[in-house]
Design a protein around this nucleic acid. Structure first.
Lengths: 229, 229
DNA sequence: AAATAATTTAATCAAATGATTAAATTATAA
DNA sequence: TTATAATTTAATCATTTGATTAAATTATTT
């Protein structure tokens, strides 16, 4: 849209220009079609198992357009990964930053929101966890940028509360349990369904129940130790 | 060892012969070296991201030997996957089949054993979960073969106990929670360490603590609802 | 020791795959 | 409308990658 070289012009959305030049329905733009196809396949199959040709087919565009708009498979993947990741941690930062809520209320909100989010995006957590293992440093930086202060502050508060005996669980365990109880069933969905014999509807019902149940379980864990008889 | 064709001879351990013909130190045999290298790389990086050349290098053998002993990358992978998977569910079946233990005792044993196992094999759960998503049917069969009756029976007992009001949690949730609490921290280790600021030693300490803590939390969940004021 | 079988090696193949190019088409600007 | 820029297409490249082959080496059997 601006440059003009011997090589194909290049006008990716990551450039600074073209803010709202074209309010084209996002869906219909070629760049967006490629991104959505890439998101679907990368999230489902991971980087290595995804073929650029499959992305092109899924998007219904010519293979060369992928490189025209995104330079390389890797660059496209990086964009998708960042967007996925941001989405994944947004809910946490969002609810935990709300100072008007008590810890219990924050937990209720986060759990409920997350279960809805995971129901709508079932492949995301495994993608995130895998990429986080392959790429711990890059994403670590992203975590900090997104929820840095909130996290540090909240965690410090929890530690104080625990040290003072107001909550009966080490903050590290609290975090592990909160996300273990919330996220794990979605990651382990195939095994769980096999083991429990639940079909898709039943599985979703179970997840809906957990919106209520997880906060109850967590609250029990939060209770300070009994006055030591 | 038996056949002799225009193509290279083929004497894999999956054949019926060679039961103990050579009590060679397992480590030193070429076949075993390939398998161990393959296990390491496949488990770490997954099928698509692993190159047969990398396996050969890791094993310190000629690339052609991989095909000589295992025919193809896929066949080698299938073997590794099955072995990993078997190892992964063995502990469960083992402890849950012990009729002399109470449910609480079984839980204690399984949790403790699993945390040790996951500490020693930190890449296994993510591998299993990924492969299970890519290959749900094949592995579903394997689950049944390994822990079929035990699972069915135990799960039925739990359902009865829950219906009768002896345990205050739906069995499906119990299973989800037990493994969520136990396995998830290992799968999400990079994020958890980042969020909690724990180094490797501290992380391992936390996991050791969970051997005691998880059974306590689970027992609380098991408690029947109060006599309804 | 000689013959046979099994294993290992180096070289090579064919297909898959990410990427590029030049030409054609479409949209935008003058 | 014409000229210019942006987009799209079909063809092609260069590497990578899984797999194979024939020859060399090593082990086993007779």
């Amino acid at each position: 849209m601006i440059k003009s070289k011997p090589r194909p012009t290049f006008a990716p959305s990551t450039q600074i220009d073209m803010p709202k030049a074209k309010p084209i329905a996002k869906e219909s733009s070629t760049e967006e079609k490629i991104k959505e196809a890439a998101r679907k396949l990368f999230t489902q199959k991971g980087f290595a198992a995804t073929r650029t040709r499959d992305i092109a087919d899924e998007a219904g565009i010519n293979l060369a357009l992928l490189n025209y708009y995104f330079r390389s498979k890797q660059k496209l993947f990086d964009i998708i990964m960042m967007e996925n990741f941001r989405q994944f941690i947004h809910g946490i930062s969002f609810n935990f930053q709300d100072k008007t809520l008590s810890l219990e209320q924050k937990i209720e909100k986060v759990v409920s929101m997350y279960i809805d989010f995971l129901t709508a995006n079932p492949d995301l957590p495994l993608f995130i966890l895998t990429e986080l293992r392959n790429n711990p440093d890059q994403l670590a930086a992203s975590i900090e940028g997104e929820i840095g202060e909130t996290r540090t502050e909240l965690f410090a508060q929890l530690k104080v509360a625990h040290a003072a005996g107001y909550i009966g669980i080490e903050p590290s365990h609290l975090v592990a349990n909160l996300f273990g109880l919330t996220v794990f069933p979605f990651v382990a969905r195939p095994i769980l369904q096999k083991v429990t014999g639940a079909d898709d509807t039943q599985f979703n019902n179970l997840m809906q129940q957990r919106k209520e149940l997880i906060p109850i379980w967590i609250k029990t864990m939060l209770q300070p130790p009994k006055p030591t008889k």
